[in-house]
């Protein structure tokens, strides 16, 4: 039996030779480990090398700038949750992450890990997408930046090369009158995987008219569904009940949800609509509060 190699580089520079080695050695990036360790124990993932990224400073920084928010890929959810300013600026992104698992899991789980695990039901991605998150991808040849929605390509698959790692997320700071929200449905109140998850980022003006919108749904398709039609429907309206009902109906028709132990196809369609309506309301209310 082969032993697994473990490396915990102290800097991005130190990570480079390891990433190069990862081109030929089956490897996994270890962030919080809350998915990876379970997959390894179940024999689903069998890496020969683990690269623990939690000691790389750039990956564990959370920087609240005037124009942008930089969130290291390996910042634990609990640290995000404890940051009051982040709650104020990107409440939906925080909601997505802090819904993942228990308090214990929160101490370990990271936004980068959640995204790169590429589960169709991942709670982190929808809100990061609607809040226009960009991913800085680091590799031996430097960095490249792609939108969050371009990371997951299929269940369990990402667009990152074997020699790349997700370094950080960059979010534009929300404008006045703009905010986000994330809601998911689970049968219990905690400790479940989303049956459906919906995020919305809404901008309103002083009259309460929606001037910009982004809606994304998780767990209804192999990857997150960005509902551009719903966004288009919302813009220009006052997000009245009829509009939200129409948005809900559109959401119920999206994706290709599966029937499994967590919910049926019909149920997922229904819940997508209900959550879409509710989450737009929450995001819009928050956006309204940010007008002052």
């Amino acid at each position: 039996m082969e032993s697994v190699q473990y490396h915990a580089p102290q800097s991005l520079e130190d990570a480079v030779p390891l990433l190069k080695e990862a081109r030929t050695t089956p490897s996994r990036i270890l962030a919080g480990g809350t998915d990876l360790l379970i997959q390894m124990r179940a024999g689903v993932k069998t890496p020969e090398m683990l690269i623990d990224i939690k000691k790389i400073p750039e990956l564990t920084q959370l920087e609240m700038g005037a124009d942008q928010i930089r969130l290291g890929a390996a910042v634990p959810s609990a640290v995000m949750d404890e940051n009051a300013e982040l709650h104020q600026q990107l409440p939906g992104v925080v909601e997505g992450m802090e819904l993942i698992g228990s308090t214990q899991v929160q101490g370990r789980a990271t936004p980068g890990g959640n995204l790169c695990n590429a589960s169709p039901a991942g709670d982190g991605a929808p809100a990061m997408i609607v809040s226009s998150g960009q991913c800085v991808i680091f590799g031996p040849n430097g960095t490249r930046t792609i939108p969050v929605e371009e990371v997951c390509t299929a269940p369990g698959r990402t667009s990152l090369a074997d020699d790349e790692l997700l370094q950080e997320f960059i979010f534009p700071a929300p404008k006045p009158g703009q905010s986000d929200a994330y809601l998911r449905f689970i049968p219990r109140n905690e400790m479940d995987i989303a049956v459906v998850g919906v995020a919305a980022n809404i901008t309103v003006d002083a009259s309460g008219t929606c001037t910009a919108a982004k809606v994304a749904l998780g767990a209804i398709a192999p990857t997150v569904v960005i509902a551009t039609d719903i966004a288009a429907l919302l813009v220009g309206t006052k997000l009245d009940d009829d509009t939200l009902a129409a948005a809900a109906e559109m959401a119920s028709g999206l994706g290709s949800p599966i029937s499994d132990k967590r919910g049926t196809t019909e149920f997922r369609h229904r819940i997508a609509g209900v959550l879409t309506r509710r989450v737009i309301k929450i995001a819009a209310a928050r956006a309204g509060e940010r007008l002052q």
Binding site: R188, I193, K261
Partner: peptide
Amino acid sequence: LQNFGFLDYRMPVAND
């Protein structure tokens, strides 16, 4: 059996 762990065999948790 599809739900062979505590994650999907949903026993009540404290805040239920």
